[in-house]
């Protein structure tokens, strides 16, 4: 199974990020440059961790700046098959 950017944006909507903001997000631009802030980022990271059952250490999580970063990281970490 692989995920896409839509999986990440769907998670964002479930954790209270304004849907209008989410719908306008570009995949390759840092989220903090698109209206998200320092509270949104850990909330998203924790939700992604729970949804996909992956271990997102703080060191990894703080490197995830864009939706594309999340997609690449999750696809790399998720069990294959």
């Amino acid at each position: 199974m692989t995920i896409t950017g839509n999986d990440i944006t769907a998670i964002m909507k479930t954790v209270g990020i304004d849907p209008k903001t989410v719908d306008a997000l570009k995949m390759d631009i840092p989220l903090v440059h698109q209206g998200l802030d320092s509270i949104d980022m850990p909330v998203i990271a924790v939700a992604v961790e729970k949804k996909f059952g992956i271990d997102l250490s703080e060191a990894n999580a703080t490197q995830l700046k864009t939706i594309d970063d999340f997609v690449t990281f999750v696809n790399k970490m998720m069990p294959k098959g």
Binding site: S38, I39, E58, A61, T62
Partner: peptide, 9 residues
């Protein structure tokens, strides 16, 4: 440490 999750945690 502002880009850490310290405040959130």
């Amino acid at each position: 440490y502002r880009d850490s999750f310290a405040a959130y945690k």
